[in-house]
Design a protein around this nucleic acid. Structure first.
Length: 771
DNA sequence: TACCAGAGGAG
DNA sequence: AAATCCTCTGGTA
């Protein structure tokens, strides 16, 4: 029978911890109790483990000890496993142990008990998630506050709910049903909350989701529940929703029914200009969902017109449905990550890359009898070198248009370097291979004997990915194929994070020398590739980190160009270490290179690829971006500069006429710190300040969407206004022409050899002359 | 004009 | 709480 472990926690009974595994099987959901699990950590002896064992025996709080042979940073080490009676005792006990004369340190005393149990027992969380039916429900609330909602003053206006079993509900209190089958009118706010809890229970929900529900819906519901003397006991065990601090943000934990907030998940997985529910929904499903303005929530709620109230209900329902749809699309990736790193999905969905890599490594360390390094304390963190180290090599591009470009890149360059050079902290600068092992450009070397811990883990990930991809090829069932694809993506994500992890100063397996060596070897390989390409008569027009764009002058025939390029590729690959490979990535009939990291290409299918240019950036307005895109299209596809010029002229005209809608003029810029944390404030902060004075709330991480209005003042910031406060037609045409559209297109045209003054005419809409 | 902080992209 | 390299803007002196 398949048993999917959704979540784990523990309770203490009679002074003993009991692990609770929340599971779902084909029979339904349940809790498995595991008794006899002992909390523990390791004590490191100064010299003799026996002496330490004896001394530990006399320490109060120590239940028992066990001497163990383990491996620490590649070397055998004797440790004493110290058992405590309950997990809460560990923090105090570890400090007491540290004070013993025969103890030089402790390890693994900060791994949460239930999560530790998952690792030690070999349980794979979410395994079987595709074989048992997981019921997913999304929850969304509306508050009619007229401004920023405040749980002390504003009740919940409505709660909307949608689940994967097809049930939809909108609960409203003290209002008539406007005639929608999913609306249920109840008497009070408290009853709405009770309805939600009851429905989650009767629908046997396993996964709860929301959009920004960690920081809004659940804390709000919790506060209101308290005010109404109602318990928000959504937990499978009947427990209430618990708010936890997780770094900068909050997490709403529901025992046994993992709550996954889609907002942070989408921010992590997608690259979008904005991450409002509407934006994510549209980019995922290519359609817009019903949307209303924030100010309309209160207006429609308080309106006597029942049609308006009906629209509000429909909007709220649409939010819950959209969130559910997003969740059903995104959760499989979270489940797969959860499986690989062997942590509950609630935790996994809230982790960054560093933490995910770390738990993967902790799990592997346990399997191999390796003692996990401690997280750096404040002291060690401060001692770690925080100066930047030399990273990747970037070729200054040959600016302008090139025809018939061949792109090669190294497959998984950094992971393959880690594996082929055995880059691991325990293999760093061994005596045995001094002079024998190849030196990295930072002059360090790595032991040739035995596979390092991290290279081994990484090889496991890459091998698994290769076999998944092979399985995918022969798989005909599309559903199964997409599951394999998601699993493959999880492997890739983790493999690609390993290099960054080495350079991460808060990492347990931090190794600056390793990170530098990897980057250094990366530079060496790409530079060597460039050199050989040039010696073979190719022109290297651009390259970045692991890629080279080459052309061949004198050859007209495309097949011939690709043939000679592939000969060159073969030659490179013959010289590379086994796990490394230069791959043919594509052929482009034409491309334009502006500067490092900024260029555009067109492929044989006529598809444009744009990198780094304004088109790709959220902090430029659509008017500028779409004009730039059209210019690139005209130049690369139609090879028609006149058409490009016409496009620009039209947009300049439209802007000057004042007819461009604000939606084409908004600029999105993230507030990367809290207001007050700025030494110098750009237009987005100026706009945010004004909006905050008017009652809006902005915090670190929010994306400010603003427009530059006619306004007055010498700075752009003086005229920048958050879009909600702007009127259609009120925008500064000079700014949009001179600071948005023209710079974006002029850079491209200049790279093509047009003179600036010759192009300036564009702005004045004079004759374009004969360029 | 030169410089800096800030932002967001590439790989 | 993954890394560095790089371009560009807006504000200021």
């Amino acid at each position: 029978m398949v048993m999917c472990v959704l979540d784990a926690d523990y309770i203490v009974r009679d002074g003993k911890p009991i692990v609770r595994l929340y599971v779902k099987t084909s029979e339904g959901a349940g809790i498995e109790l595991v008794e006899g699990v002992e909390p523990y950590f390791y004590a490191l002896p100064v010299a003799d483990a026996k002496v330490l064992s004896e001394e530990l025996g006399g320490l109060s709080g120590v239940v028992r000890v066990e001497e163990k042979h383990m491996v620490d940073n590649g070397d055998p080490v004797d440790v004493v496993k110290v058992f405590a009676s309950i997990p809460k005792d560990v923090p105090q006990l570890r400090e007491a142990v540290l004070r013993l004369d025969s103890c030089r340190g402790y390890r693994e005393a900060d791994i949460p008990f239930a999560r530790r149990y998952i690792i030690d027992s070999g349980i794979v969380p979410m395994d079987g998630s595709d074989q048992v039916e997981l019921n997913v429900a999304s929850v969304d609330i509306e508050v009619a506050s007229g401004g920023e909602p405040n749980a002390n003053r504003h009740p919940v206006a409505m709660i909307s709910y949608a689940d994967s079993r097809g049930l939809k509900r909108v609960w409203v209190a003290g209002k008539d049903n406007p005639g929608l089958e999913y609306v249920e009118a109840v008497g009070s706010e408290g009853e709405m909350l009770e309805k939600l809890v009851e429905t989650v229970r009767t629908q046997e929900i396993n996964i709860i989701t929301g959009y920004n529900s960690d920081n809004f819906d659940f804390p709000y519901l919790k506060d209101r529940a308290e005010k109404n003397n109602v318990k928000l006991n959504l937990g499978f065990d009947g427990s209430e929703v618990r708010m936890e601090r997780r770094g900068m943000n909050m997490g709403a934990r529901v025992a046994g029914r993992p709550h996954v907030d889609m907002y942070p998940v989408c921010r992590q997985v997608f690259n979008l200009p904005r991450y409002q529910l509407e934006d994510v929904y549209e980019s995922l499903f290519g359609e817009r969902k019903l949307d209303i303005k924030v100010s309309q929530i209160t207006e429609f709620y308080e309106s006597e017109d029942s049609e308006k109230f009906k629209i509000l209900c429909e909007y709220s329902m649409a939010d819950a449905v959209a969130t559910l749809k997003i969740a059903l699309r995104m959760l499989p990736l979270m489940y797969e990550l959860s499986k690989v790193i062997r942590q509950p999905v609630y935790e996994t969905a809230r982790m960054g890359s560093g933490q995910r890599v770390e738990y993967l490594l902790i799990d592997e360390a346990y399997k191999q009898g390796i003692v996990v390094p401690n997280r750096p304390g404040d002291r060690e963190y401060g001692d770690r070198d925080d100066s930047p180290y030399e990273g990747a090599f970037v070729v200054d591009p040959v600016k302008g248009i090139h025809d018939n470009i061949v792109l090669f890149d190294f497959r998984s360059l950094y992971p393959s370097i880690i594996i082929s050079h055995n880059v691991d902290p325990s293999k760093l600068d061994c005596d045995c291979c001094e002079g024998k092992a190849p030196r990295a450009p930072n002059n360090h070397h790595f032991c040739l004997e035995g596979v390092g811990f991290i290279p081994g883990v990484l090889k496991g990930l890459l091998d698994r990915r290769v076999s998944l991809k092979a399985e995918m090829k022969s798989e005909e069932d599309l559903e199964r194929k997409s599951l394999l694809d998601v699993e493959q993506q999880a492997m890739k994500l983790l493999a690609n994070s390993m290099y960054g992890y080495y350079g991460f100063q808060r990492a347990r397996w931090y190794c600056r020398e390793c990170a530098e060596a990897i980057a250094g070897w990366g530079r060496k390989y790409i530079q060597k590739t460039i050199k050989i390409a040039e010696s073979k008569g190719f022109n290297v027009v651009y390259g970045d980190t692991d890629s080279v764009y080459i052309t061949k002058s004198g050859l007209e025939d495309v097949d011939e160009i690709i043939r000679v390029a592939k000969d060159f590729q073969k030659e490179i690959n013959a010289e590379l270490p086994e796990s490394m490979e230069l791959e043919f990535e594509g052929f482009y009939p034409r491309g334009v290179f502006i500067t490092k990291k900024r260029y555009a290409l067109i492929d044989t299918q006529g598809k444009l690829t744009v990198k780094g240019l304004e088109t790709r950036r959220r902090d430029w307005c659509d008017a500028a971006k779409s004009t730039q895109q059209k210019v690139l299209d005209a130049l690369l596809r139609d090879r028609d500069p006149d058409k490009a010029a016409e496009t620009v002229r039209e947009m300049v005209q439209r802007i000057k006429s004042g007819e461009v809608p604000l939606s084409e003029l908004t600029i999105n810029t993230q507030m990367t710190r809290n207001i007050g944390g700025y030494v110098s404030e750009g237009p987005h902060i100026a706009a945010a300040r004004k909006a905050m004075k008017a009652g809006m709330d902005f915090k670190q991480g929010d994306i400010i969407t603003y427009v530059v209005t006619k306004g007055s003042g010498s700075n752009i910031g003086d005229k920048a206004v958050v879009v909600d406060f702007a009127e259609e037609g009120d925008y500064d045409p000079d700014y949009y022409v001179n600071n948005q559209v023209l710079p974006a297109v002029l850079r491209i045209l200049e790279a093509l050899g047009y003179q600036e003054d010759e192009l300036k005419g564009l702005g004045r809409q004079t004759s374009l002359g004969d360029w």
